[in-house]
């Protein structure tokens, strides 16, 4: 089973890199980009003995996010599971 973790800055946390991306898009002629927010995607390939009940897997990946993958002071995360 694969888990995909999307980590993004919390709303309200200033994202200097996202701001630079939005400026660059504007410079390239792409009007109408109100805001860009940069995040990261972490893909996990989970061993068969870990994968199983989706809810248990989700809880486990959630634990990984809180302990390492995201800094919940400034970041929020979303977990997608692929069977």
């Amino acid at each position: 089973m694969k888990a995909r973790v999307h980590v993004t800055l919390k709303p309200g946390v200033l994202d200097p890199q996202g701001k630079a991306i939005a400026h660059a898009l504007q410079a390239l002629g792409f009007d109408g980009v109100n805001e860009a927010r940069q995040g990261k995607v972490i893909e996990l390939d989970l061993a068969d003995d870990v994968a199983g009940d989706p809810e248990a897997v989700r809880a486990r990946v959630d634990d990984m996010c809180r302990k390492l993958l995201a800094n919940t002071v400034i970041e929020t995360y979303r977990i997608d599971l692929d069977a």
């Binding site: 890199q17 630079a20 400034i74």
Partner: peptide
């Protein structure tokens, strides 16, 4: 120390990158 939670807050990319 911020990542361990021994100090509050976080340190992000510099304002002008």
């Amino acid at each position: 120390l911020c990542e361990t939670g021994l100090l509050p807050g976080a340190l992000m990319r510099n304002r002008d990158l």
